[in-house]
Design a protein around this nucleic acid. Structure first.
Ligand SMILES: Nc1ccn([C@H]2C[C@H](O)[C@@H](COP(=O)(O)OP(=O)(O)OP(=O)(O)O)O2)c(=O)n1
Ligand SMILES: [Mg+2]
Ligand SMILES: [Mg+2]
Length: 962
DNA sequence: ATCCTCCCCTAC
DNA sequence: TAAGGTAGGGGAGGAT
């Protein structure tokens, strides 16, 4: 049933075809093991050693005059290093006799020289210049290797389009490179945080999590394309046939799933050229191993007690107390800890209790001998590419999970080749090992779940097959916390239920599970505990969002710094969207804000510490990928959220409701603009509106907001209900309600609206003066903003503190000279309003539909200039214009839409609701005729937007549709 | 019922 | 010092 397929067993079978397979890897497959001994051997050996190759790492390609073995020996003898596997990060020089086309790309960042450079240098007793030995592109014979054309192409493409993390230095292995040591001397003066220019790039260049996210996304995309368009050519599978590895079990019709995952991925890559560390506890981390004194102003106890679990001692399912104790004791004992995270640790380190994601300090306590090794971002990328290419040479039936992990459905491979699961697994593992120097483990089972769980058993460097008949036996003894979907929280709940193993879990009824967990999780727990899983292998994954966030190094003092950072981050989002050729309709701003009682200094240097998370989203008027629009919306949201600059600890921007970027649409000119300008501007000269208007109002749609977005001006007073929830500090300040609606409008209109709002607010307050309803009236039942934590926070500016900017925060003060006059008075016709919030309706009428007499509005007013829409004044003119626009445009441009919104809003402000109403109906009617999704959405947005403003002023909405 | 927004959780 | 990103599933609760 289940056996640990060891490499040795498979090896003999492979020997046959490796020779003739033509893989470059096959040439050097046996070298790695010997390396360790040889190093020590060579070092103790007497003879003419030197250090002329100090800082040099060579990779030998192809057949060379002195053999690669000999070159290796020479390098070791003369202070250089020898790489078994090429990587930009590890190898400073490639030694070869010729330079094949296929390698040019890979090698373009390193020196490629002939072997004589080595031998001559040794003869000369010094390192000679490479120049005379440099190889140039020769139209040489491409090795007629397996024709991977398609895959390789894609692979290269991936490498190119990827956000390239700059290779720090050509050779950053442990051997120091004297010449490049100059690097970070000048920048020490000041700490680099979010206020510094270029911080975002520097951060991303050093973020492992960013790297694995990026890589993961690339591979998902790669597999998607592979499946959609890839030629179904499987050289690997072909080889299996040719070399007669076939067995005799043709009647496999059960599904067979494999889960392939690199062993301690980052560590494996890092150890490729550090054979001396193999077998030792090793961790990949930014920490160099020096202990770090706690800084002034940090509060260790505080962070310990509030810590959400994940960070301080690792992403484990241990209970919080244990971890706290661990951290606390390591602090007490050592008096200093490194708060650098461990990305990956070797299995030796795991034995001591070290886990991926743990901080270095606590890890050191668990494992005093833990050896830190540096990141090698390029190496991870390369190895991951090879992994995926190897697997893709056997099947395209792949589900990419991450850069080091995937599922494959190998039912058809087994069918068509007749080999066994174990044979296939070891073949793949061997090939990966040969080509990358890293171990992969494989779990095999009849479904995804079992394959995944089998990998745990297989690791490290093994494979494990679970036959369908053994599922029950196998799953029963697995730990429940290892089931997919069971993380920290769920684990705690399971513990409370007395569940440890899947066997325990089986004893819990579905009903009981549902009391503790949600519907979905309950169901999957129930099924998984029995080894059942019907999830299919998903080869094609459609992305649903694009985001960029930074929760490290965020420190601001001034709002201007926040603004600048948002601009930069929006730029980053734009870059990502454009690279993916996507635009989005929904924008979400995510902030991390220092918890009110958290110290300003975090334990971790520039970390985010203990925070509240806030998210706020907004609809974009049209699919957007434009940095300016994005930034503008974010800033509007930020204004609403009203956070003290000093309390920001994290910022993120997410774009969702994605659409493919239709390049055609963006080319169409703005008709309205055209007409408008046409009246003023003689001719074609500059008829075309610059694509990016500096203040292009990429509309943001204020979301109608669950619980009633704070579109109604409120008095600052907090109702008890909300206060009890403790989140009142996050309350939107009255002057900023609908800020993001207002933001988009011209200043003068903004001001008018604000005045109107205040006026109406007064009225309302007066009306409801004695009534109890007031409370509800003034503040929405449900908090508008999402605050992950219900705690109070001093973090948010109270409204009055708000800078004395253009928005007067005073609600009660009637603006002097308040003058708003409707331009033309229409008949006092009744208009139907739809009340968004019945209970907010002022006393007289309490009904779903409320009639408001249009004529009540104009009290004071003045509208100095006529309101006009592209020159059109009368409603009929406007209608004509709209019609022309409607029937001559396929996709409405957002600037046009905005212009109309602007016009309608002016009408609203001028209290000409009737016209607004008529125009809306008109628009509706005609759009129905056109019947395009684009136009429907546009009209929705227009109406929503206009209604937001109406709502702000009247606390009711105009019923527009029909 | 079904949608949407905001949140939490999980995974790598 | 240190580089705590990113995407998706899913649930609660309000709007429609
Ligand atoms: N908290 C984490 C988890 C993972 N990773 C990175 C480093 C890992 O090497 C890589 C792959 O994650 P895995 O979960 O596959 O873990 P490893 O490959 O390190 O170990 P294993 O042998 O358990 O797969 O992702 C990380 O940076 N931080
Ligand atoms: Mg792994
Ligand atoms: Mg993995």
């Amino acid at each position: 049933m289940s056996k640990r397929g060891r490499r040795g067993g498979a090896r003999s079978r492979n020997d046959g075809w490796e020779e003739s397979g033509g893989y470059m890897a096959a040439k050097k497959c046996k070298l790695d093991i010997q390396y360790n001994e040889m190093v020590s051997l060579e070092q103790t050996k007497e003879g003419t050693s030197s250090n002329i190759f100090n800082g040099i790492s060579i990779y030998v390609n192809g057949y060379t005059k002195p053999s690669s073995d000999e070159l290796k020996r020479l390098m070791m003898l003369h202070g250089g290093k020898y790489c078994h596997f090429f990587s930009k990060t590890n190898c400073s020089h490639v030694i070869a006799n010729n330079l094949p086309d296929s390698k040019v790309k890979d090698w373009k960042y390193v020196k490629t020289v002939k072997p004589e450079w080595v031998t001559d240098s040794i003869k000369a007793g010094k390192q000679l210049s490479c120049t005379p030995y440099t190889l140039y592109v020769a139209p040489s014979v491409m090795q007629p290797t397996i024709n991977f054309a398609k895959v390789s192409e894609d692979q290269r493409h991936m490498s190119e389009t990827a956000t390239v993390c700059k290779a720090q230095s050509v050779c950053n292995t442990s051997t120091h490179v004297p010449s490049t040591n100059v690097q970070k001397v000048n920048q020490n003066a000041q700490t680099k945080d979010s206020r510094n220019e270029g911080f975002i790039k520097e951060f991303y260049d050093n973020s492992r999590l960013h790297l694995i996210s990026t890589l993961g996304a690339e591979f998902k995309d790669f597999v998607t394309k592979l499946h959609q368009t890839g030629e179904k050519v499987f050289p690997g599978r072909q080889r299996l046939l040719e070399h007669g590895i076939y067995a005799q079990s043709p009647s496999k019709q059960e599904q067979v799933i494999m889960h392939i995952d690199m062993d301690s991925f980052f560590v494996s890559v890092g150890l490729r050229n550090r054979p001396d560390l193999v077998g030792k506890p090793v961790a990949v981390t930014h920490s160099k191993g020096k202990m770090v004194q706690p800084r002034e102003g940090t509060d260790f106890e505080y962070e310990l007690s509030h810590w959400k679990g994940f960070s301080l001692s690792g992403n484990t399912n241990l209970d919080a107390d244990t971890k706290q104790e661990l951290v606390r004791s390591s602090v007490e004992l050592e008096k200093s800890v490194s708060m650098a995270e461990i990305a990956s640790c070797s299995y030796e380190a795991r034995q001591a209790g070290v886990k991926n994601g743990m901080f270095m300090g606590p890890a050191r306590k668990l494992c005093p001998n833990l050896v830190p090794i540096p990141y090698e971002f390029e190496g991870y990328r390369e190895v991951a590419h090879i992994l995926y290419n190897v697997v893709a040479s056997y099947t395209h039936h792949i589900e990419a999970i991450s850069c080091d992990e995937m599922f494959i459905d190998c039912t058809d491979i087994l069918q068509s080749t007749g080999i066994s699961e174990e044979q296939l697994a070891s073949t793949i593992r061997d090939e990966v090992k040969d080509k990358t120097g890293c171990n992969a483990s494989i779990g095999i089972g009849p479904n995804i779940l079992i394959a995944r769980m089998a990998t745990r058993v297989a690791k490290p460097n093994g494979q494990h097959l679970v036959h369908i008949d053994d599922i029950q036996h196998f799953i029963a003894k697995q730990l429940a916390k290892d089931l997919p979907g069971v993380g920290r929280k769920t684990c705690i709940k399971l513990q409370a239920l007395g569940v440890t193993t899947c066997s325990d879990l089986q004893a819990i009824s579905l009903a009981k599970l549902q009391k503790e967990f949600g519907a979905k999780l309950s169901e999957s727990l129930f099924e998984f505990a029995r080894g059942k899983d019907d999830r299919p292998i998903q080869m094609e994954k459609e992305r649903k969002s694009v985001s960029a966030e930074v929760n490290y190094g965020i420190r601001f003092k001034e709002q201007t710094e926040v603004t600048r950072f948002i601009n930069d981050l929006a730029e980053e989002v734009q870059t990502r969207l454009r690279r993916l050729e996507l635009k989005g309709r929904t924008l979400t701003l995510k902030l991390k804000v220092r918890k009110s009682d958290a110290p300003k200094e975090t334990i971790k240097f520039l970390g985010h510490g203990i925070c509240d998370s806030i998210a706020k989203s907004t609809q974009l008027i049209s699919p957007t990928d434009d940095a300016q629009s994005i930034s503008k919306q974010c800033l509007a949201l930020i204004k609403i959220l009203n956070v003290e600059p000093e309390d920001y600890r994290g910022v993120g921007i997410q774009i969702s409701r994605l659409e493919r970027n239709d390049k055609l649409a963006s080319k169409s000119a703005s008709i309205l603009k055209y007409m408008k300008q046409g009246t003023n501007i003689p001719d074609t000269a500059s008829v075309h509106i610059p694509k990016v208007l500096p203040d292009l109002p990429t509309l943001k749609l204020d979301n109608p907001e669950p619980g009633g977005h704070a579109s109604v001006p409120k008095q600052a007073k907090t109702p008890t209900g909300i206060a009890a929830q403790g989140s009142s500090d996050y309350m939107v300040s009255p002057s900023q309600i609908d800020e993001n609606v207002l933001q988009e409008l011209p200043k003068d209109i903004q001001d008018q609206i604000r005045k109107e709002m205040r006026l109406h607010q007064m009225k309302k307050i007066n009306t409801a003066a004695g009534g109890k309803q007031t409370q509800e009236d003034v503040v929405p039942k449900q908090e508008t903003l999402s605050i992950s934590s219900l705690r109070q926070s001093p973090t948010i500016k109270s409204p009055k503190k708000k800078s004395p900017s253009k928005n007067s925060p005073k609600i009660f003060k009637v603006p002097k000279g308040s003058k708003v006059v409707k331009k033309k008075k229409l008949s006092p016709k009744k208009i139907v309003f739809q009340d968004p919030n019945q209970h907010e309706i002022p006393p007289p009428v309490r009904h779903n539909k409320t009639s408001i007499d249009v004529s009540i509005k104009p009290v004071v007013s003045s509208q100095p200039e006529e309101i006009e829409f592209c020159g059109a004044r009368s409603i009929n003119e406007v209608k004509l214009l709209i019609k022309e626009w409607l029937y001559n445009t396929d996709t409405p441009l957002q600037e046009d839409i905005l212009m109309l919104v602007e016009y309608l809003v002016q009408l609203v402000v001028a209290k000409n609701l009737e016209e607004v109403y008529l125009l809306s109906k008109f628009l509706h009617r005609h759009v129905l005729r056109i019947d395009t999704g684009e136009w429907k959405r546009a009209v929705d947005i227009i109406e929503q937007k206009v209604n937001d403003v109406i709502h702000s002023i009247y606390s009711s909405k105009l019923k527009l549709s029909n």
